[in-house]
């Protein structure tokens, strides 16, 4: 880390982080799943969170998004304490996630899914009259997202009948439909067959620059290609942080990843 990480640290000190955790802790009975994690996500970041299986990456995402209550510590979004906010309120403030295992609305088509989310996003969620079909601007935005995520060809197919790769794309499109300021991507390419992988990588690369992204991923090729800053999580606590080159050279990280990630040293 050291010198290579320094310029970034200075930068993040000047512009306040979008998302910050302070000594975040989660215990399940006697097991400490998240151990005093202090994380800082800069505006527009391409930040990766890596770590071996069981390191507590998904638990951390669940703490950040409010799916799990924290045991101790705090989460700040734009320096506002959101530690106790319910999931949907955090989304309204711009913190959005994708799921490792696609979580879709199985009986709805991609177009219906995106229209309903865009509608919700624009404050129509409580309107009990009229139809989304008549909201031209909602439909327009939904169609735009379908186009952007290469879902236009399957826009009217029930999502439980979509191919796996398309589901992963819809998973990300859903998150983007929520107009995120911070986007947590939980293993976006996990289990995606090689043929459909490229499509997802391209859409990830094309995500809006102003959106701050925290990428949780096992795939080291994607991590080192995508991120400009990496946090390594081991046994629930931060082992190392820094720019990709520094992380790749870190002997402790190498020790943890011996055999799995060492081959990807850039």
């Amino acid at each position: 880390m050291g010198s290579l990480a320094a310029p970034f640290d200075k930068g993040s000190a000047v512009s306040a982080p979008v998302l910050r955790t302070e000594r975040l802790e989660k215990r399940f009975g006697g097991i400490v799943a998240t151990d005093s994690v202090s994380l800082s996500i800069a505006p527009g970041a391409r930040h990766a969170l890596i770590g071996p299986n069981g390191a507590g990456k998904t638990t951390l995402v669940n703490l950040l998004t409010g799916v799990l209550p924290v045991s101790a510590g705090a989460v700040y979004l734009d320096e506002v304490d959101i530690t106790r906010l319910p999931v949907h309120r955090r989304v309204a403030r711009g913190m959005v996630r994708t799921f490792q295992i696609s979580q879709l609305f199985r009986s709805l088509s991609p177009r219906e899914t995106l229209a309903l989310i865009v509608g919700q996003q624009r404050g129509l969620g409580r309107r009990w009259w009229g139809s989304l079909a008549r909201e031209a601007s909602v439909i327009e935005r939904a169609d735009q997202l379908l186009e952007q995520f290469r879902l236009a060809s399957v826009r009217d197919v029930r999502t439980d009948q979509l191919a796996y790769g398309k589901r992963r794309l819809l998973e990300i499109a859903i998150a983007l439909a929520c107009e995120p300021r911070v986007l947590l991507l939980d293993e976006p390419v996990a289990g995606v067959p090689a043929g459909e992988r490229e499509e997802i990588l391209q859409t990830l690369a094309a995500l809006p620059a102003q959106v701050s992204i925290l990428l949780i991923e096992h795939d080291m090729e994607l991590v080192f290609g995508f991120s400009r800053f990496i946090t390594v999580l081991v046994n629930g606590s931060v082992l190392a942080e820094g720019e990709p080159a520094a992380i790749a050279a870190d002997p402790r990280v190498k020790a943890v990843y011996l055999g799995s990630g060492a081959g990807h040293t850039p």
């Binding site: 949907h88 609305f105 129509l124 009990w128 859903i174």
Partner: peptide
């Protein structure tokens, strides 16, 4: 059939995801 009804369908199909897109 309203936007509210659409959010109900979302909750029925997947409450976890419904919350994650901002639906109470």
């Amino acid at each position: 059939r309203s936007p509210l009804g659409a959010t109900l369908l979302a909750v029925r199909d997947n409450p976890l995801r419904a919350a994650a897109v901002g639906i109470p």
